[in-house]
Design a protein around this nucleic acid. Structure first.
Lengths: 143, 143
DNA sequence: TTAAGTGCAAAATCTTTGCAAATGT
DNA sequence: ACATTTGCAAAGATTTTGCACTTAA
């Protein structure tokens, strides 16, 4: 069940979730990568160990608890990545930029890029900003 | 078939597409609104007149020709809106900001808001930027 | 022990594909 | 007339739901 150095038991405990092997596997996969992981990727890697339906439910639970956040890429596919520590059950703060590679389709979290404020037209009240830059990533540009 | 003042026949002609009633209906609906129209909305309004499969194909064709562009909203649902005149069959230039209302779920094109440039990490080559601001829109804030 | 979590089957959607019939030019 | 476009049926994919079984606490 646990394969990386990190232990996620206390993370689950903090959110009053039971520490099942399936949940630990999902956390293991999501926290071990630099980039966000697509739902299809999660399915193909964890498919042997976790039922597809269970995976849906785990991802939904984690998102509601503020453990991970969902980013829809330019194809409409769901991708998941760990939340910053500022996220709570009630509000997500993931206002960083994402980079979606048009070649390999990977979705990176660019935590260092700052999103500027925008002046909205009268009557529009902004809550959050979602910014995805498409292009070719470091790995693909080397090929 | 044609219900608004505008006639889209020459638009279709320009792109070497046949002027069918179904296509004119879709153009009619997309060009008559300030905001982008979701695929479900298109289906429910045009469902009597246009087969669901045909709608998929029309939207795909229009997008490929650079007549409309697709915006995936925060739920992963496809929305469509007319392209700016700068769009061609080969390249889309729709780098404006979209506003997705969390109450009514409408997706507005905010053509006046400028997207700034971003400094990318080494190795990442950006092609396009997709920026969606979520919040409550003018209409919903009045309620 | 028992509430929470999982797996399976099946339903409900969503999207694509193949082909025959209809339509625009 | 003929290539394009549409509609239907059906396949494929994705997501949700109900319920019985299992497991963590």
């Amino acid at each position: 069940m646990k394969t990386t150095g990190r232990d996620f038991r206390e993370l689950l405990e903090k959110h009053h979730l039971k520490k099942t092997d399936q949940r630990l596997d999902v956390l293991d996969m999501l926290f071990s990568k630099e980039e966000a992981v697509s739902q299809p990727a999660l399915e193909s890697v964890l498919g042997e160990q976790i039922n597809r339906v269970t995976l849906y439910r785990i991802l939904k639970t984690f998102e509601e608890k503020g453990i991970i956040h969902r980013i829809i890429d330019r194809n409409g596919t769901a991708n998941y990545a760990p939340c910053s520590s500022a996220c709570t059950e009630h509000e997500h703060h993931d206002e960083h930029v994402h980079f979606n590679c048009t070649a390999c389709n990977k979705l990176y979290c660019l935590n260092d890029i700052h999103i500027p404020g925008f002046t909205m037209p009268a009557g529009f009240k902004p809550d959050s900003v979602n910014l995805i830059i498409s292009g070719t990533c470091r790995a693909c540009n080397k090929k």
